[in-house]
Design a protein around this nucleic acid. Structure first.
Lengths: 203, 203
DNA sequence: GCGCCCCTTGACACTCAATGCCATTTCCAG
DNA sequence: CTGGAAATGGCATTGAGTGTCAAGGGGCGC
């Protein structure tokens, strides 16, 4: 199948890029270096990835969709802090499941957090996650996302917890504590997430 | 004085850029368009601003320093939610004081929030604000910012409230409600800001 | 006034990211 | 084998950002 080959080429390009970018640094590695390592044309690279940043952070879009889908699948009676914790755990679970994925994920996380341009681009994706979570939360609690600040801020607090987990995980040693880090982060925002429901600031 | 002239040139460049970018859109306006409108050389633009984004969001760095300074000046006994609310009010107060500043500020806010590249760049500055607030909060509560998630997340929640205020203000009509929007946003995160102090998650 | 010095400016050239265009190759179907 | 669609590679172009150098312009000693 042609579709399968496309994905294969994309992975080849992505692997070569990740290898170079993580070892030498994002700014000093040019697209020419990447395509030379992958044995392809410069033009081909930009047919698979919209930009040099894209090759690193592209997968974030799919992850965001999964997060929002998970939130939508949580039982409506569940407190926001619990539902959001489970939703944000989806991308984190992919790291804990396969040990070989863990180290690769940590390399990517370090690369993103240490490169301003990549971090900015990943923030753009986080904005999309937040928008999705905001819409879903507004629907869950029957609130107007434009008038009531709660849905937007609840989504923001969840993303903040996620970001904090990654920041702590990046410098951390053992990966088993990802769940513990997540619990602790969500425990901080839980009072604001659950303590205030629609009744307290709708009027 | 030469220093005064430098600032004058920078303002000239910034005004011309803001005018073009806000009316025609960020992506379609080139640096050549800006310098042509300002009657200067292309090279001169990049002597005053590091990038096309920089001309719009440069002032955010100074604002961040003011915010952190204000937090440091708040009385230590003040609850975190109150201290942070006052700290984040500093840049907002500049808008409410002078009516002519208000409309200009709103134009810039709209431009930033509607342009992904600018929004991402402004978020990078917000990260710096957050880092400053994190350090200050950790000092106030005698916590380790690396081990305890509270300082980082409290700072993040304050920035989130700030962001929410801007989002609601952008679409809003009258500017007098900025204080009210700020109060409502901080009311959402106050339970997490004040309800949990060092004792609850230090161990 | 005159040369001197320092800073600013403008012009040119260059790298690199990113896009459009077109010829060539590949690959599958008939 | 052959027609055609998709993928590819090469080429040219735009635009951001940087380095370099020559020219201009104002303060200052002479």
């Amino acid at each position: 199948m042609a579709e399968r080959k496309r994905q294969l080429v994309a992975e080849e390009l992505r692997d070569a890029a990740l290898m170079l970018l993580a070892t030498r640094g994002f700014d000093v590695v040019t697209v020419d270096d990447i395509v030379a390592a992958a044995g392809m044309s410069r033009r081909t690279f930009f047919r698979y990835f919209a930009s040099k940043e894209d090759v690193v952070v592209r997968f974030l879009a799919d992850l965001g969709a999964d997060v929002v889908a998970e939130l939508a699948a949580r039982p409506p009676a569940e407190p926001p802090s619990v539902a959001l914790r489970h939703a944000l755990w989806v991308p984190l679970a992919a790291c804990t499941d396969h040990p070989d994925h863990t180290e690769r994920a940590r390399v990517v996380v370090r690369l993103i957090l240490d490169t301003p341009a990549l971090y900015a681009r990943s923030l753009e994706y986080q904005i999309q996650w937040r928008a999705g979570l905001t819409t879903e939360l507004a629907a869950r609690h029957d609130l107007d996302p434009d008038a009531d600040p709660y849905p937007r801020m609840a989504a923001g607090m969840a993303m903040l917890a996620f970001d904090t987990v990654l920041q702590q995980w990046r410098a951390g040693d053992d990966e088993q504590r990802l769940a513990e880090l997540t619990d602790r982060a969500f425990a901080v925002v839980a009072p604001a997430l659950d303590g205030c429901t629609a009744s307290s600031h709708a009027g």
